[in-house]
Design a protein around this nucleic acid. Sequence first.
DNA 1: TTGAAAGCGGTACCAC
DNA 2: GTGGTACCGCTTTCAA
Lengths: 340, 340
Amino acid sequence: MSARRVTIVEIAQHVGLSKTTVSDALHGGGRVSPATAAKVAAAARELGYVTNRAARQLRGRSVGALGIYIPPIARNFNFYMEFAFGAAHGSAEHDADLVLFARDADVGPRHFQVDGVIAVDPLPGDPMLERLVDAGIPMVTAGRPPEALADAVSAVIEAPHGDLTRLVLDHLWESGYARPAFVGSDRRFYSSWADDVRRTYVEWCGAHSVAPSAFDCPLDATADELSTAVRSAVRPSDVDALVCAPQGFAGRSIGILESLGVHTGTAFGLASLSSDPTTELGNPRITAVDLAPWTFGRESIVLLAAVLGGDQHDHLNRFADVGVRIAGETTTRSWESLQA
Amino acid sequence: MSARRVTIVEIAQHVGLSKTTVSDALHGGGRVSPATAAKVAAAARELGYVTNRAARQLRGRSVGALGIYIPPIARNFNFYMEFAFGAAHGSAEHDADLVLFARDADVGPRHFQVDGVIAVDPLPGDPMLERLVDAGIPMVTAGRPPEALADAVSAVIEAPHGDLTRLVLDHLWESGYARPAFVGSDRRFYSSWADDVRRTYVEWCGAHSVAPSAFDCPLDATADELSTAVRSAVRPSDVDALVCAPQGFAGRSIGILESLGVHTGTAFGLASLSSDPTTELGNPRITAVDLAPWTFGRESIVLLAAVLGGDQHDHLNRFADVGVRIAGETTTRSWESLQA
DNA sequence: TTGAAAGCGGTACCAC
DNA sequence: GTGGTACCGCTTTCAA
């Protein structure tokens, strides 16, 4: 079994200082002299010291754990999985654990034993978000929060979905596709992402004097449901491209379009605004927005850590680093390069 | 911000008892009289008491958190996501948090601040598993562990993959399909699951005097890679069905087969041994094994909790509750009913 | 710049 | 059955 852990007292004995000094040297605000700080750090490393989170939490305020909450509806998508693991990595870099909150986990009174939480794609009226806010847990949202929560949220990180959508539509346009249709998620998933991409599509159509052909279906659409939406979207005879919002829909649409006699990639354009890594980003027929969920998750933790660290900079609302892979190309263009 | 929390001292004052008695009444081993236990429980509820995990951990041994580890290769599948959320729910039921471990999170010395861990589909040679074992964390694996870890694992939970595979093959056989082909995952994902389904397929072929037609591809196969595997598998002209092992492959194969002029669901059988909830379980063309990942995850936590609670029963190795939905049927048959 | 002592909220051990 | 007390490892006063 695990050997007994090294404590600051042992370090103190080892270097001939008091436990107070050791504590300050390791975590404090620069009270101790650089020389002793170095000595203590060396001893800590040598002895294999690791902070006992329980003790720290008991006396102080920090828990040493961060939380992540993902709405149940969205769990079909590996976007969230990748996001969560990026967040876990980021947490580890900040010496914190990442705790997974399940909405269903509402069993009896429990406190959230975390210093802060990432709420991914916060949906209006989600009771779990309210509980977190009521508990006073500092919250960073990935995606803009609903109105009711706006004041309670410490910071927001999001991808530039509107810009990305416009970029994809422009690319299709420049490639000669004159009327792209759109398939998005329905109202059960009313995130800022869903809003942004849908609104941008409609605006873009207006700016290009193109009649929108937009249809929604559930995020967890079955083959039939997606098929219905896709058929409706591409029904107008002059539709020559399809832009799918939710992850995987574009990849799944290839077969549906094929069965309609529509061959993707040549005369008909196809794009995904939130790409599945294997079926969409890896598919040369599809122009694919890479939301880089792992990085996104990690960056959201960096932001949360900054908030908890007391950063009050006005750039607390950030954009994540994303990319786009154009159909037929093998490399992904970063968002920054695309801005230029 | 969060109101100061209620402590056992306040409960003690409230009911006119000592700290010790309150502690025993709430968590102890039945030392106190039923009457006082009830009184204390009532007061605790009334005052909104929640155990302070840090304090408990500091004195005692329990951390109040469980961990889950999912190998990076496998993260493409929402099976694991559902599993993780089932586990989070199960943890909450045991008044524990669920911590997500990332292998990449190997940044500096950190202790695993958990009472035990679920390792999902443990792969041979995974350094993270070794670290967990070295740290002496009690481990339950979902799926049988590799040889090298067998002794270090406290319990195993798995689905009866061999039986399920046989059942699917038998069903296809009885439906008139004489020679099913097989597409599985390659060696980079060498789990007991991958082993079981592949071996069972080959055995079944032997028992039915059918020549196997089995091909592997990466778990994160692109459209092209999967296409290659499927084409190879169905090349023999007498192949009249396809059984796909990894989640989503059967659903993705429909389009591939279509492009080969093979129409699934009528003259050609299709099955998935690990079904995606929307594209496969919801698809009437596919005979789909429902691994019920949420329940699986929850049950794995129940098992881990039993292990940590000191259960030494010999039924520590369990089978999860799974189901199968036969192509064309709308309901899922439970594994238990299928046994009968 | 450093040290001593108190105390966070529980649990374990011992008396009664 | 119940109560008193020490103590887990750390941070936070307050003194030196």
